[in-house]
Simulated assay, not measured.
Amino acid sequence: MTSQLDFVTIHKKPNVYFQGRSISYLIECKDGSKKTLGVLLPTEKPLTFETHVNELIEIISGSCEVRIGDDEETYVYSVGDSFSVPENSRFSMYSTDVVDYICHLG
Rank of each mutant, 00 (worst) to 15 (best):
M1A: 11
M1K: 02
M1D: 07
T2E: 11
T2S: 06
S3Y: 12
S3C: 05
S3M: 09
V8Q: 04
V8N: 04
H11C: 00
H11S: 04
H11V: 01
N15C: 07
Y17Q: 12
Y17N: 09
F18S: 08
F18N: 01
G20M: 10
R21N: 07
I23M: 05
I27K: 02
C29S: 10
K30R: 04
G32W: 00
K34G: 00
K34Y: 06
K34R: 13
K35W: 03
L37K: 07
G38P: 07
G38H: 06
V39P: 06
L41E: 12
P42S: 02
T43D: 07
T43F: 01
P46F: 12
F49M: 01
E50Q: 13
E50S: 13
T51G: 05
T51K: 06
T51P: 07
V53T: 14
N54G: 04
L56E: 14
I57A: 07
E58Q: 14
E58C: 12
I59S: 10
I59N: 04
I60W: 00
S63I: 03
E65H: 06
V66I: 15
V66C: 09
I68L: 10
D70F: 08
T74V: 15
Y75H: 13
V76M: 10
V76I: 15
S82Q: 05
S82L: 10
S84E: 15
S89C: 13
F91W: 05
S92P: 03
M93E: 14
M93G: 04
M93D: 07
M93R: 09
Y94H: 14
S95D: 04
V98C: 08
V98D: 01
V98R: 02
V99L: 06
V99D: 02
D100S: 13
D100Y: 09
Y101P: 01
C103S: 11
C103W: 04
L105N: 01
L105R: 11
